[in-house]
């Protein structure tokens, strides 16, 4: 076991030395991979930030029930009873038409206009807090619409649902972009490792002649692939970090105008780790394909 670990450590340190020994090549590789990964990573960040915003600023989904203008107190009591026994709602409150008119007057400054109307045009209304489930809203709306003296039912969180489905669409786009660029990453490491195998063919041949197993020969190449992938992932992370820093600076005046704290947050710890591991894994995979494809060409003769 210690022998095995020592062999791996030796292969890894040799890989590091090789990586650092050709700084320009390594830098170019890592930059290409970093750029390729930074694109989907950036989009992902914008999306998840938007999603966070949508969650923070969308109120609990509400359904408004407007009664007919000629609804009587008995009708209101009837609806109240029905709502009390209605399953799947978090609560409700009654908004009498007089109160609605008063709040309209005080809040919109349309007092004069309303005063000129002569009579109150607003109906009695109920505001129902639905649960968190967006799917339940539609059935609630249908249910309420069948009740007596109900003129209209409004679902108030339509915009949040539209945003949600837009974001879901965006996530698919990011996923597709990420898949395409992951493929590119595999291709890049494949080619890098191919060139590396070419430059080390003498060493490979000699090592085979003096009893090296395939595992021994492959090891440094697989490490190199993972290292390139991982470093590429780190570069992508830094690129996105830099872009966010610039972007947040530009966002600050806008946020102040609207009076809300509007900054884009970077990846959290586990997402960052996952990015690095994913990139490293892709690099390993590219190297593995390359090694499988190219190593057996160098049988000594």
């Amino acid at each position: 076991m210690r022998r095995w670990l020592a062999a791996h450590w030796r292969a890894f340190s040799a890989t590091l030395a090789r990586f650092a020994g050709a700084p320009l090549t390594s830098l170019l590789n890592v930059t290409v991979i970093g750029t390729a990964l930074a694109l989907p990573l950036g989009f992902y960040l914008v999306l998840s930030n938007l999603q966070g915003l949508a969650r923070d600023y969308s109120p609990q989904p509400q359904v408004s029930i407007f009664l007919n203008i000629d609804a009587q107190e008995a009708d209101v009591r009837e609806i109240t009873q029905r709502l009390k026994s209605q399953p799947g709602i978090a609560g409700f409150r009654f908004v009498p038409r007089d109160q609605a008119l008063k709040s309209l007057q005080s809040r919109t400054g349309l007092g004069d206009v309303i005063a000129g109307l002569g009579q109150n045009p607003l109906p009695d209304a109920f505001v129902v807090d639905a649960g968190r489930k967006a799917t339940a809203l539609e059935s609630l709306r249908a249910e309420f619409a069948r009740w007596p003296k109900v003129a209209e039912v409004h679902v108030d969180s339509d915009w949040a649902r539209r945003l949600d489905s837009l974001l879901a669409l965006g996530r698919y786009a990011v996923l597709m972009l990420a898949s395409a660029l992951a493929l590119a990453l595999v291709a890049i490491t494949f080619n890098t490792i191919r060139l590396q195998i070419l430059t080390q063919r003498d060493e490979i041949e000699v090592a085979k002649l003096i009893g090296a197993t395939d595992g021994y020969i492959q090891r440094p190449f697989l490490y190199l692939g993972s290292l390139i992938g991982c470093t590429g992932g780190a570069v992508a992370w830094l690129m996105v970090w830099g872009a966010l820093w610039v972007f947040n600076g530009q966002l600050r005046p806008l946020a102040e105008l609207y009076g809300i704290p509007l900054t884009l947050a970077h990846l959290n710890g586990s997402d960052s780790m996952a990015t690095l591991l994913f990139a490293g894994g892709l690099g390993w995979f590219g190297a593995w394909l390359s090694v499988r494809r190219h190593l057996h060409h160098y049988n000594p003769s």
């Binding site: 003498d202 000699v206 085979k208 003096i210 009893g211």
Partner: peptide
């Protein structure tokens, strides 16, 4: 590989690295 570990090979062209 395991057979070759019992062998020592000397080549005319040395095959040094």
């Amino acid at each position: 590989p395991f057979l070759r570990r019992h062998l020592g090979l000397v080549f005319q062209d040395h095959k040094l690295l």
